[in-house]
Simulated scan of single mutants.
Amino acid sequence: KDISTFEHKELIREALLTAELAVYIESPWIRKATMEYFDAIKFFLEKKNTKLFITYGIDSRPINLPHRETFE
Rank of each mutant, 00 (worst) to 15 (best):
F43K: 10
N49Y: 04
K1S: 11
L65A: 08
L17F: 11
H8R: 14
E36H: 01
A15E: 02
T70Y: 03
P28L: 07
S4I: 09
P62G: 05
I25A: 02
T18I: 07
H8D: 14
K1P: 08
R68H: 11
A19Y: 00
K9E: 15
T50G: 06
D2I: 09
W29F: 08
K42H: 12
F53Y: 14
E46H: 08
Y56T: 12
Y24R: 11
D39I: 13
N49L: 04
K1Q: 10
T70K: 03
K47Q: 12
L21M: 12
K32A: 14
I3P: 07
T5D: 09
K1R: 12
S60D: 15
K51H: 06
T70N: 09
Y24E: 08
T50Y: 04
A33Y: 10
Y24C: 13
I12M: 15
P62E: 10
A22G: 13
T55P: 00
R61N: 04
F44A: 07
I25W: 00
K1C: 08
K47A: 09
T50M: 04
H67L: 05
F53R: 06
E26P: 03
F71R: 06
H8M: 08
D2S: 07
A15L: 09
L17D: 00
E46I: 03
W29M: 01
K1M: 12
L16N: 08
T70P: 01
R31Y: 06
R13F: 02
I58F: 10
Y56R: 05
R68N: 05
K9W: 08
E10S: 15
P66K: 01
E14C: 09
V23H: 11
D39L: 11
H67N: 14
K9G: 12
T55I: 05
F38H: 11
T5Q: 09
T70H: 00
T70W: 01
L52Y: 02
T50F: 03
F71H: 09
F44T: 02
H67Q: 07
A33D: 12
P28T: 10
W29I: 02
K32I: 12
D39T: 15
D59E: 06
E36Y: 00
K47I: 06
N64M: 08
F38T: 11
N64I: 01
D39H: 13
K32C: 01
S4G: 14
Y56N: 04
